[in-house]
């Protein structure tokens, strides 16, 4: 009797297995959480050291237009004005998203509504391949095709925001397209049928029903595309020209946050002001990536069709 009692009071074999399993999976998930927190902590603490240790004014960092961290200006303040990089980063991101969006919407309409047969096979495969092409390959093609072309067309060096925009346009196009296709597919089929049954033409249906219903999804796709463009480093670095000057036109060499980081980190000494200033650029990048995340959440929660 006591034996049975003891057996009943002890946790069973299954319970023990369950505990082991839970411990394993909890450990993994906590590890991922820790990794994310570590990244945020390190980038933020190093990025802030320009302002806390080197006493650079935050506003003059964000609005200054001279970037030569090794030198000081007339007032003895270090010349760390990040505005040229911030402006260039936003310029290439917004321009490439603006150019890519109409193309992406057209391709995804073509793939889902106009010619779904073609869409499923050939275009789908190509888009998947393009999403997977490494960014250095895009950069190399930009360097050998786009830059000489721009140079030939408009003179100058060919490096600059325009070349960066063209390369990023091709890079974000597949990203935006594949996400837009998903959101168009999520529009219930009876929306389309109801509209056609009312006698609307295909374009009226697309414009007044499908696109309206898919707007949040398309916005999410555009934001993802912009996030990719903003964070892209090497492809942009290869075609933008890497001159930390305030961009005067689309054709003069410029530098983005990412390109400046790529070229700069290896040439500065850890802990010095030029190095810290670069970490502050990384901090801006990180914050923008968080902003894009929040924007996706916000748009997504606004546009849930089932609500």
């Amino acid at each position: 009797m006591d034996q049975i009692k003891a057996k009943l009071m002890k946790p069973s074999k299954e319970t023990k297995q369950e505990t082991v399993g839970k411990i394993i999976s909890y450990t993994c998930i906590v590890a991922i959480m820790l990794l994310v927190l570590l990244v945020l902590y390190f980038i933020i603490s190093f990025g802030m050291s320009t302002f806390t240790k080197n006493n650079v004014n935050l506003w003059s960092f964000l609005s200054g237009t001279n970037w030569s961290p090794g030198q000081v200006d007339a007032h003895g303040n270090p010349e760390v004005g990040a505005l040229p990089m911030i402006v260039t980063s936003f310029a290439v991101t917004i321009l490439s998203a603006l150019v890519a969006t109409p193309f992406a919407i057209a391709v995804s309409l073509f793939m889902t509504i106009i010619a779904p047969k073609h869409g499923k096979g050939f275009l789908q495969a190509i888009i998947e391949l393009l999403v997977g092409i490494p960014s250095v390959v895009y950069g190399y093609i930009g360097l050998t095709l786009v830059v000489p072309f721009i140079r030939h067309l408009y003179g100058g060096t060919g490096f600059g925001i325009l070349s960066g925009t063209i390369v990023l346009f091709v890079m974000v196009l597949p990203t935006i397209t594949s996400l837009t296709v998903d959101s168009l597919k999520a529009v219930p089929r009876y929306y389309l049928e109801a509209s056609l049954a009312l006698g609307a033409t295909r374009w009226q249906t697309i414009y007044k029903v499908i696109l309206r219903a898919a707007t949040p999804g398309i916005l999410t796709a555009i934001i993802f595309g912009m996030a990719r463009a903003f964070g892209e480093a090497l492809a942009v670095q290869m075609v933008i020209g890497n001159a930390t000057l305030m961009p005067k036109s689309l054709l003069t060499p410029a530098a983005t946050l990412t390109s400046q980081l790529t070229t700069g980190i290896g040439n500065t000494v850890m802990g010095s002001l030029p190095n810290n200033a670069l970490w502050s650029l990384a901090l801006i990048l990180l914050l923008m990536s968080l902003v894009f995340n929040i924007a996706v959440k916000f748009v997504g929660s606004k546009g849930d069709l089932n609500k």
């Binding site: 892209e232 480093a233 995340n293």
Partner: peptide
């Protein structure tokens, strides 16, 4: 929170991950 953390990790620019 975990889902958000994973999304943040996946959207971090790769240069940031590299620098970290």
């Amino acid at each position: 929170l975990i889902q958000t953390a994973i999304e943040v990790l996946s959207s971090l620019p790769s240069i940031i991950v590299g620098l970290f």
